[in-house]
Design a protein around this nucleic acid. Sequence first.
DNA 1: GTTCCTGCAAAAGCTTTGCAGAAGA
DNA 2: TCTTCTGCAAAGCTTTTGCAGGAAC
Lengths: 148, 148
Amino acid sequence: MRIVKFAEDLKEFLRSRGVRPSYVRLKVLQYLLTEKTHPTAEEIYRALVSEIPTLSRASVYNALAVLSEAGVVQALTIERHEGRYDAKVGEHGHFQCEVCGRVYDFSVDFGSLRHEALEGFLVKRRDLYFRGICPECQKGGESHGKSG
Amino acid sequence: MRIVKFAEDLKEFLRSRGVRPSYVRLKVLQYLLTEKTHPTAEEIYRALVSEIPTLSRASVYNALAVLSEAGVVQALTIERHEGRYDAKVGEHGHFQCEVCGRVYDFSVDFGSLRHEALEGFLVKRRDLYFRGICPECQKGGESHGKSG
DNA sequence: GTTCCTGCAAAAGCTTTGCAGAAGA
DNA sequence: TCTTCTGCAAAGCTTTTGCAGGAAC
């Protein structure tokens, strides 16, 4: 009964953030919390449509927009052509492998970063994106495909 | 004659990077070096088409792709829906104002940043994106439009 | 009962592609 | 001369929008 409890908690959590806990929103958030792969909207849609056959992409985009607005999830801009989403909202870094496309989290102490003073600028969000090749793709001779 | 000299230097520079110095490529690069506003492809197109009436968007995208490949310019992923380009290739940070959309550079010492060790990861590129409100938009009561 | 959400389809916006003609080596 | 680049148009991809039926409060 852990799952049910989990779902109930999520409902409460969303309500506390001023978001109506609709079925699609709950499923999208649950997926993001479970699969920490920073999926794209398309990946979320494909994963959930098997469970919710009537699901449409528009509803996924809609849910993601609402959850982002409420600060429950974070939209990454690590790629230009498709948005990726993260349910971990605290500040941390993201590494994307240019071979397999996977996105990895890593912890960052932004307080230690020395940079030019941004006087007069109101900073609301900080994103750190690293790019390169992940250990698996270095080992595996770059044999990983980009699709998931 | 500074301009002519500048253009000659640019040609040499491109050749040294293995890029044929075509007219469009030179103009795109020149624009990026002069206007440090991190323009989008559309903005570059609009700025150059008055000088080059036959210019097409496809050629701008083509030139940007070639220049990016050669490491002469850098494609930013600070926004999801449109690419912005920067001729400053050294590592530095970018701040985007959520009101006017402008992107500002600031210097960063990545060496000072403490973060989780990325053992086994080959890091090729590091991007730091800040978001918030710029001084002008805080003063001006957010009256700036997003278009250029 | 009223408001908000979903799902379908079509449209919008940015970017890429195919091909013929032009420019550069 | 031969390769490469340009420009036009059309297509591709992700994302947004409009509207009718259904779910949540």
